[in-house]
Computed example of a mutant assay.
Amino acid sequence: MQNLKIHYHPEVENLDNKSIFTRLATRSIAMQESNILLLYTERYQDYSLPGGGLDLGEDIIEGMKRELIEETGAQDIRNIKPFGIYEEYRPWYKPDFDVQHMISYCYTCEINTALGTSNMEQYEIKNGMKAKWVNIYEAIDHNKKTMLNSDKKGMSIERETFLLELLAESIARKLEV
């Protein structure tokens, strides 16, 4: 799978003599024309792709489907294709490690427009996370405004906005053909 970007948090100046915790994750990209299925998180005022961490030993595709179903209630997941990998190095604020290396495997897929019932984790509910179909360009603009103006922005918004912009570019290329 193509590596889309390696992003270093400003506090991670180098990896020399650092203990690194690696976390594998997935991100799902379900689109219908210029609308994309995203999660809006009230706490951080941002849009993100459905996805999350893989369980130990879990197959990447199975983990992607599990996360997509849990967070959005997606039904009839089909036509799954690799989009790319986004890697991040972030400060790790727990004992035993200095840095978290998150590797997000991103896949496009098709799903039914109608969503079933989600089964979010308690922290996701507490943060006000909700699945919704959104125009991709509106989501990008919203995230950019959040990055500029909000002190509540989460660390993941840069990844999500980068991925949304890549997707928007691919839409534009298809329209040119």
Rank of each mutant, 00 (worst) to 15 (best):
D16A: 14
A74D: 13
T72N: 09
I20P: 00
Y89G: 01
K65S: 09
K18D: 08
W92F: 14
Q100N: 06
N79C: 07
E88R: 12
D55H: 04
I61G: 03
P91Y: 00
A25L: 03
E33L: 04
S34K: 12
D76R: 10
E62H: 09
L39G: 04
Q75N: 15
L56T: 08
R66H: 13
W92H: 12
P95D: 12
F97W: 15
I85C: 14
P50Q: 01
I29Q: 07
F83E: 00
K65Q: 13
P50E: 00
I29F: 11
P50S: 02
K94F: 12
E58L: 04
P82C: 14
K65V: 10
R43V: 05
K94E: 13
G53Y: 01
T22G: 05
Q45V: 06
E70D: 06
A74Y: 12
I77N: 12
N17G: 06
N17A: 00
Y40G: 02
D98Y: 14
E88G: 14
P95Y: 13
W92E: 14
I80P: 02
G63H: 05
E42P: 02
D55I: 04
I60R: 13
E88D: 10
S48F: 04
G51L: 02
W92P: 09
A30Y: 09
I29P: 09
I77E: 09
Q45N: 15
E33I: 03
G73E: 14
R27L: 00
D76N: 09
D55W: 05
P95E: 14
Q75P: 13
F21T: 12
I20Q: 02
Y89S: 08
Q100Y: 00
S34R: 11
Y44P: 03
L37W: 04
E67T: 04
G57C: 03
G51F: 02
N79S: 15
E71C: 06
G63F: 06
L49F: 05
S48K: 00
K94A: 12
T22E: 10
F21R: 11
I69W: 03
K65W: 01
G52H: 06
Q75S: 15
E71A: 00
Y40R: 05
L24I: 07
